[in-house]
Lab assay of single mutants.
Amino acid sequence: MDPFVVLVLCLSCLLLLSIWRQSSGRGKLPPGPTPLPVIGNILQIDIKDVSKSLTNLSKIYGPVFTLYFGLERMVVLHGYEVVKEALIDLGEEFSGRGHFPLAERANRGFGIVFSNGKRWKEIRRFSLMTLRNFGMGKRSIEDRVQEEARCLVEELRKTKASPCDPTFILGCAPCNVICSIIFQKRFDYKDQQFLNLMEKLNENIRIVSTPWIQICNNFPTIIDYFPGTHNKLLKNLAFMESDILEKVKEHQESMDINNPRDFIDCFLIKMEKEKQNQQSEFTIENLVITAADLLGAGTETTSTTLRYALLLLLKHPEVTAKVQEEIERVIGRNRSPCMQDRGHMPYTDAVVHEVQRYIDLIPTSLPHAVTCDVKFRNYLIPKGTTILTSLTSVLHDNKEFPNPEMFDPRHFLDEGGNFKKSNYFMPFSAGKRICVGEGLARMELFLFLTFILQNFNLKSLIDPKDLDTTPVVNGFASVPPFYQLCFIPV
């Protein structure tokens, strides 16, 4: 058959498939802009700032609406009420993970971030239990974070109060905490193996944040037939998995079943207990991918939040002064901060919360999916439909947070200066898919920041009023603009 005829037939089939998918069930789905064949609503979305586009569309179609990214149908949730109703009140029905062709290629359905069903539930339950087990290797997770915080302070001392970009050092600290939990080992910041790991993690975040990856996920045929950065992403992930597998083999040879040292040991012990169960989800494949998931999810998000926190503290020296006064009063100079201190430091706690609220790190979270046909607000959402959640619409709700575009710790303080919780605080998402490392991340943010401010004054290279804190939105995360500062020993 003539190649031209084959091409026309293929394009015609794709067009018909697109029209059929977009028209099927439209009477039951939430409203939304009319999609174009094949490309859907992509032309109506700013790929570099999806969150802003969703906010604009919500003003037209309401808090629940339908979009098509290519052939992929998505239902968008915008605003606290619908997000709570879906992710919390109907948590089980909305607990699936959205379709990610690239991740599915890399992870093969294993791990904790992109798995679904029984596998996801069992691996998540085990990971939560293990991360909360403060007795691994007779050292609590808090001990590990405190140790890394001391190392971080010593690295900052080496800058000798000269101007520096904190990106690298602030990236090393949370990565080392995860390494300590998974591998029972922290690395020197100049260790070549550690630097290679950091390089792969950072490069992957840069790649994932590009519009090209959005295109690959919406048109998965590209993955096999086109060159691009997605190939580098898959190569980096394969490198990390190979490295983790080597460490798993080392653990198998040296493990003491009665004295687990780290996450890998705990997983291997669980595998041993379930070795007679042919349906067990505790396999080497799941261990390797879960460890890679924890490394990827637990490094860049925390380091970016820390980097943004220091920029905001530079911009608002009056806030920094209040935090340091609270540190001096509650902790002093002669001991290290600990998590028990947080309950006695409402202002510092409010500042950490406000940093996370203000920066809105992951504006749309990772997409969910419905696990069955769901009736939601008089609409029928078919099983498997991807759910896109606007966390921006919750964290920047102007009824809950007056002047949401302003950095103001009073958003989390009552009139008496006591810490005030808010149900709208969802930087880790909400419901059954809430970030498994939430507790660890909150511990790291509090301890790293208090250790830094206990030991250093922060000095800006320019007038604080002239510092730009506008986030650089890159399609996946909101990151701070480049800046330098000086760490002046107190």
Rank of each mutant, 00 (worst) to 15 (best):
Ile331Ala: 04
Phe448Leu: 05
Glu72Leu: 00
Ala86Phe: 07
Leu156Met: 09
Phe110Val: 06
Gly117Arg: 05
Lys52Arg: 12
Leu458Asn: 02
Leu445Glu: 04
Ile362Gln: 10
Ser18Phe: 15
Cys151Gly: 08
Arg357Pro: 01
Val177Leu: 09
Thr469Arg: 04
Ser51Thr: 14
Gly417Ser: 09
Pro163Met: 10
Gly135Leu: 14
Thr371Gln: 11
Asn423Asp: 15
Val6Asp: 00
Phe425Arg: 01
Gly79Trp: 00
Val288Glu: 00
Trp120Phe: 04
Ile47Cys: 13
Tyr80Ile: 08
Asn286Ile: 02
Ile178Cys: 02
Val83Lys: 02
Lys459Thr: 08
Ile331Asn: 00
Asn418Arg: 12
Phe187Glu: 04
Arg26Leu: 12
Asn202Gln: 11
Lys200Asn: 04
Arg357Asp: 00
Gly70Leu: 04
Pro382Val: 04
Asn423Phe: 08
Glu85Trp: 05
Glu93Gly: 08
Leu7His: 02
Asp293Glu: 11
His230Ser: 06
Ser242Lys: 13
Gly27His: 14
Ile284Pro: 06
Asp143His: 10
His78Pro: 01
Pro63Ile: 00
Pro409Met: 03
Leu268Gln: 02
Arg105Leu: 06
Gln192Ser: 14
Arg73Met: 06
Ile42Gly: 07
Phe187His: 08
Met345Ala: 00
Cys338Tyr: 06
Ile222Glu: 03
Ala161Asp: 08
Val5Thr: 14
Asp143Ile: 08
Leu313Met: 11
Val208Leu: 14
Ser365Asp: 03
Asn116Glu: 10
Pro337Ser: 03
Thr299Glu: 03
Gln278Thr: 15
Ser115Pro: 03
Arg124Pro: 02
Pro382Met: 03
Gly416Cys: 14
Tyr483Arg: 04
Asn56Asp: 13
Ile215Phe: 14
Gln324Cys: 11
Gln356Ala: 06
Leu237Trp: 13
Pro367Arg: 06
Val374Tyr: 02
Leu15Thr: 13
His411Cys: 00
Lys160Leu: 10
Lys421Trp: 09
Pro382Phe: 02
His411Phe: 02
Pro367Phe: 05
Ala441Asn: 03
Met406Ala: 12
Glu405Leu: 13
Pro3Gly: 12
Asp89Tyr: 10
Gln184Tyr: 13
Ser422Glu: 01
Pro33Val: 00
Glu415Val: 08
Asp468Ala: 15
Ala477Gly: 12
Gly431Gln: 02
Pro317Ser: 08
Val319Arg: 02
Lys270Thr: 10
Ala86Leu: 03
Thr305Tyr: 04
Thr320Asp: 04
Val370Glu: 00
Met406Gln: 14
Leu287Ala: 07
Ser23His: 04
Leu447Val: 10
Phe4Trp: 11
Thr364Trp: 15
Arg261Asp: 03
Pro317Phe: 05
Pro346His: 03
Val370Arg: 00
Cys372Phe: 07
Ala86Tyr: 04
Ile123Gly: 06
Lys235Phe: 08
Gly437Thr: 03
Leu449Arg: 03
Arg186Pro: 04
His230Asp: 03
Cys372Pro: 00
Cys216Gln: 05
Lys322Asp: 05
Lys138His: 12
Phe446Pro: 03
Thr159Phe: 10
Ile19Thr: 10
Gly91His: 09
Gly27Thr: 11
Leu128Phe: 12
